[in-house]
Design a protein around this nucleic acid. Structure first.
Lengths: 198, 198
DNA sequence: GTCTGCACTTACCAAGTGGTAAGTGTCCGC
DNA sequence: GCGGACACTTACCACTTGGTAAGTGCAGAC
């Protein structure tokens, strides 16, 4: 793993834990036994490093999304898999999930606002897919977005809560909830879209 | 409104927008045309101010929660109202919602970790209420927590997304989704708990 | 050998950080 | 009029911030 990639990985971990302003470039470099000027040598500025972290994350999500879109044609199945895949990715890399959540919270545009150019097409895809599921029932884009947001919110929120829940109730209960969660999500999506089709 | 309360309100707004580390006490004071020492005079330290902001927020949520627990006995109705009330509060004060979300993300304990002593009893109440809805079906605490988290995640996530969604798609679409969202939440809870009762 | 590019260092900077100390003015009870 | 509590100020502190400048050491090319 190149020094550069190591920087990105370390930065992702720290940014996820304490946020952009909560981490100094010196702290990131120190974690790797280097000086902050080594970091600046590779990335030029703190913002650019942050941008690269976001870019790597959104790249992974987009790749995963594209694959599902290519392989699943049935809209209900596609929508379900898109949400579940996103959930699995976030559970597998919870630092990434936290970072994206932080990006969602920060209303100021920063470092190219990387969350946008991945999140927007992703959301558009989800909304379009949902709208194509049952053309019979009239459904506005706003209503579709509301439904999508339930799914994503339920998934993302849970993926991000491990530290807090672990601290509150112990990791055992979180892990127990985790065992059920994916299935719960699947049922939630199914029941929502099935009821909607009535 | 006292200077002190103004400080808390201003701090809440700024902390919500940029996080604890992203805002300096000088910036907060400057917004009110005062010096940072005026702020320190009232609160002693940045952490204490932050703590007071969290305390005010959690106080409101707890008051609202207690009232519902006192007035609703039917568990399904109580659970639904608890989640919806939380959602309404968060939509009414989106800065507060963002702050709590940030608190959820920060795994380090800080400023008394105010989110804990409000969030934990709140979650416990929700889990207990859910478990009492249908004692016939065996259900573990972890499973109950998973269900609860779907509801809260869907609500909280949406409440926090206005800036991002507004930037992405324009406020019109967000407002349209918003019109439907509370009803969507209600249906989601109902269908989840109704199916569970089968 | 010497030159070049690369990864990385030490040294330094202006600006900003949270916080302390010591006032300054103003209102209020007496 | 006076003493003290209160709200707030200026002045200052040690420290950290992101970033620049100028090397240093070391590989490979010629």
């Amino acid at each position: 793993m190149s020094t550069r990639d190591q920087f990105i990985a370390t930065a992702q971990r720290l940014f996820a834990a304490k946020g952009f302003y909560g981490v100094s470039i010196a702290a990131i470099a120190q974690q790797m036994g280097l000086t902050k000027q080594a970091l600046l040598h590779h990335f030029g500025s703190k913002e650019k490093l942050y941008g690269e972290v976001l870019q790597r994350i959104s790249g992974e999500l987009m790749a995963c999304t594209d694959e599902i879109i290519a392989s699943r044609v049935d809209p209900l199945e596609r929508l379900t898999e898109l949400v579940l895949a996103q959930y699995r990715l976030q559970m597998a890399d919870q630092d990434a999930a936290r970072l994206i959540m932080r990006e969602l919270l920060d209303n100021e545009p920063r470092a190219g606002a990387a969350a946008n150019w991945y999140l927007k097409p992703y959301l558009e895809t989800l909304v379009d897919t949902l709208l194509s599921i049952n053309s019979a029932r009239e459904r506005s884009r706003g209503q579709a977005l509301a439904a999508i947001y339930q799914f994503l919110g339920a998934a993302h929120y849970f993926a991000v809560s491990q530290p807090t829940l672990g601290r509150m109730f112990g990791d055992a209960l979180y892990n127990e909830a985790r065992q059920h969660y994916e299935e719960e999500l699947r049922q939630m999506i199914e029941s929502r879209l099935t009821i909607a089709a009535r």
